[in-house]
Design a protein around this nucleic acid. Structure first.
Lengths: 251, 251
DNA sequence: CGATGAATTGACCGATGTCAAGTGGCGTGG
DNA sequence: CCACGCCACTTGACATCGGTCAATTCATCG
């Protein structure tokens, strides 16, 4: 637990809120799965076709069921992509950080968003309207190719999670979820990898397909074993290796 | 149950094994998600870049873990795409019929097949080697675009199944699985929709994420209610509407 | 007509979800 | 600055769906 009074200790939990203001935007685009491989001129072109949007923490960037207008790429901040089922269950599809994108299919099909994206931090995103994106793809076929590769990768990931849900017990799935999060949103500190985003037990439950109660019990157990340190909406992974062991365990 | 002795009744269960021999291959390509929208000349070109392979029922078209060489498109027959997890569980990803394809990511990445494809019937498939496919995509950017769209659709489907697995009880999932199968492999008969492929209780279980025992009980129940008729490795859907009701049930 | 593998059925049980009742930390307003 | 209240989290007791196992039965094919 993180309540040992020492506020020096607490520095570990100060979150990086840096939101770059110059124009490293092109760098972000150049590193993204969708636009990688384009020349600087082409990236300029792509960037100019987009408009920048700002969101405050907690705001919905897109809302599931709304008519799908635009393809989004996160420039700074973080987002949570969530689906809510007909019977009200929340399912957390994935987390996004700068360079990650969502709404590709929705924007191109023009139908409706199949999920909601919620800004976790104050965030900014570039958005391209459906037709604009289609034109860009026409002009730079590389984008379509990249898009295809990105979607195949997501597909593999999703298949894997499906498989895990089907065959692995809860504790292993939570371990997998934490490993994914520490890869995606991890911040190295001297004590371990801090998940750099508010992460409640319920979030983690929705991400690993269980309930907040089970997550609570499991985290507590891990905390006692020294694998993680937890606080209110905070998780710090002290030993990734232990998590890997837990995730792999055939028992 | 299908054991009423009347062999006239049995005609319902004769499977269509037609394996077209002329050259409607181009039609199949033209209708496939990957090659749709190409001109006939381009389709010719595409077709000539491929080689045809034959498989007998039960043969593996690709084996999970083998080095990924080629992109496959089923021309006739049916296939079952299966993943086996590290701990030996089988997970049925999807079924394929003519025009369906698999191995796109594997062929392009050149890594290894992430699943096995088993021929259900005697089957034939066109295969394109990784480099060849990459060249075709370079030449006809439409293919990459189509590929992207196909993968986004698969992704949506996979997300949906993930969601279902997470939130719906077994009976609903089995109903969903049967509905998918009757769309994909259904054969209209006067009595209902026959799943046109040997489908054991275990297959259905692997497809809906449960056990053959549960499937057996559920099918029995449905049979008594007149929703389906079943036989050894055969399922006939008598009332799709009832299945839709069951699948939607919030209870 | 017998062998083989699919399907059925019953009994059992265990991992997880559900529910209810706290506990404690953090922020807000007096 | 303190107290209050909110909300995340914890913890225990309990219920239950559906998986596991074992024993048959049945159907299809040689």
């Amino acid at each position: 637990m993180v309540h040992d009074g020492s506020s020096a200790e607490e520095t570990i939990y100060r979150r990086a809120t840096s939101c770059v203001m110059i124009d490293p935007i092109l760098h972000i685009l150049a590193d993204s799965s969708v636009f990688q491989g384009l020349s600087e001129r082409e990236l300029q072109d792509v960037r100019e076709a987009a408009t920048m949007r700002r969101y405050v923490a907690g705001e919905l960037m897109v809302r599931q069921g709304d008519p799908a207008l635009a393809f989004h790429m996160l420039i700074c901040g973080h987002a949570k992509l969530v689906q809510v089922t007909p019977d009200g269950h929340q399912v957390l599809i994935r987390y996004a950080r700068p360079g990650h994108s969502f709404g590709l299919r929705s924007a191109l099909s023009g139908f409706e968003y199949s999920l909601s994206a919620e800004a976790i931090d104050d965030s900014r995103a570039l958005v391209w309207y459906g037709e604009v994106l289609a034109q860009l793809m026409e002009r730079y076929s590389r984008i379509a190719f990249n898009g295809m590769r990105m979607m195949t990768l997501r597909n593999v990931e999703m298949q894997l999670r499906y498989q895990e849900l089907l065959t692995e017990p809860v504790e292993q799935r939570v371990a997998q979820a934490l490993l994914r999060l520490s890869n995606d949103m991890g911040q190295k500190t001297k004590e371990g990898i801090l998940i750099d985003v508010p992460l409640s037990r319920e979030d983690l439950a929705e991400y690993s397909g269980t309930t907040l109660y089970s997550v609570s019990r499991i985290l507590r157990q891990w905390e006692n074993a020294g694998v993680v340190r937890t606080g209110r909406e905070r998780v710090l992974v002290r030993s990734q290796d232990s998590l890997l062991d837990i995730a792999a365990a055939t028992i």
